[in-house]
Design a protein around this nucleic acid. Structure first.
Lengths: 208, 208
DNA sequence: AACCCTATTGCGCACCTGTCCAACAGCGGT
DNA sequence: ACCGCTGTTGGACAGGTGCGCAATAGGGTT
């Protein structure tokens, strides 16, 4: 019998195991028994903590994705200048979306139709990312270093671009020059926000 | 007993039924029995024409997605001027990705990990779209109306942007001003290709 | 009209899924 | 040392899955 744990610890242990399995097999293929085996416990235990599979998957996705969001928030707080913050945002967002992370988002979007709580979680986090960038832009506008008539739609467009690039990177499994991609999307954002070229990414590449 | 059909007809009837079900329930939730019921025949019949479920889903996705590709090719052929063609491309691509179509692509990408043939089909079509746009750009450059140092990456970036916008539209179920989105992405492409502002979309909106 | 070929049937098989639950076991308080 | 609360077990259960196969039926040919 597996050693008894405090409810809070056990709960997060289950979530951690679920994340592990999701990354290995994909969200749709993750089963109760897989998670139990990953933890080395019985399958019944999982339903003692989570009312349904939808619950568990939502919690696991939340944990995995919220981590990136918090990491970005933390990195942002370390900077004072709005432009420097924006620069950090591009760096961490692009890194957060790489490899496994974006595949998880894809799974969540596809699964959203069948799993209400996964859908709710995905939507909530999506909005949080947009709000984060929107606030960043508004700070920049307020301090006069940026100009942007509609921070909301602008944030939304910039995120769309980043997501689209991540999507293409996953769709073609081909290796992609991530640095060039970041540079291009940053250059795009510079135009969008009325910043001078090279402000966000000093090391411009060959492409326009 | 369902009326006997010619192999070719029956095969495409099965594919049509599969598409119907996929659109209604999502690719992952589409089962052999669902498709059979949709056709009003027995489930065994499906395996008489398709070796595996992977096969069937790939064929159905291929049929559904290739349709949009061909429609765009056809619309393109009706124009002579490279710029006019590009304008048509933006209109039809944005329309092709709306509603159900993009959800299908999402399903395909998420399912790709578990279904080899779906993965192969998705990749092939993805490349075809990029090639189509790349050729378009090269024609424009050759005739001197566009300037673009790297047509390949440029096409890839433009498609990323369009896909990202569609992604956000699906993720937020919120209604989105599609015309404004098209206008913005077209304006972006104008910069990318050295075209004058308003060349691709005459009716510019409020946003930058 | 007889016949053959094959499209079509409908069920069986083995396996997997989420969920539930009675029994069990170990830790904390008495 | 005892005992009760509850974390944990492991299997039962009903349903669903892709796939295979012997039997059937119906259209085209002779």
């Amino acid at each position: 019998m597996a050693t008894r744990m405090q409810p809070a610890e056990r709960r997060s242990a289950i979530v951690a195991a679920a994340i592990e399995v999701m990354l290995r097999k994909g969200m749709a293929a993750t089963t109760v028994r897989d998670v139990a085996e990953q933890m080395g416990t019985s399958s019944g235990l999982i339903h003692h903590y989570f009312a349904s599979m939808d619950d568990l998957l939502a919690a696991a996705f939340d944990e995995a994705a919220s981590g990136d969001l918090e990491a970005t928030r933390l990195a942002l707080a370390a900077e004072d200048d709005p432009v420097a913050r924006l620069r950090v945002f591009f760096g961490t967002y692009a890194r957060a979306e790489q490899d496994w992370a974006f595949q998880l988002w894809l799974d969540a979007w596809a699964e959203a139709g069948r799993r209400p709580r996964v859908q709710a979680t995905s939507r909530r986090l999506n909005v949080a990312w947009q709000r984060l960038l929107e606030d960043l832009i508004e700070q920049g506008v307020a301090s006069g270093v940026m100009s942007c008539p509609e921070p909301g739609p602008a944030a939304w467009r910039i995120l769309s671009l980043l997501d689209g690039l991540a999507l293409q990177a996953v769709a073609h499994r081909a290796d992609i020059d991530r640095e060039a991609v970041i540079a291009w999307s940053a250059a795009n954002a510079e135009r969008e926000l009325g910043l001078a070229a090279g402000t966000l990414v000093p090391y411009q590449r060959s492409g326009r």
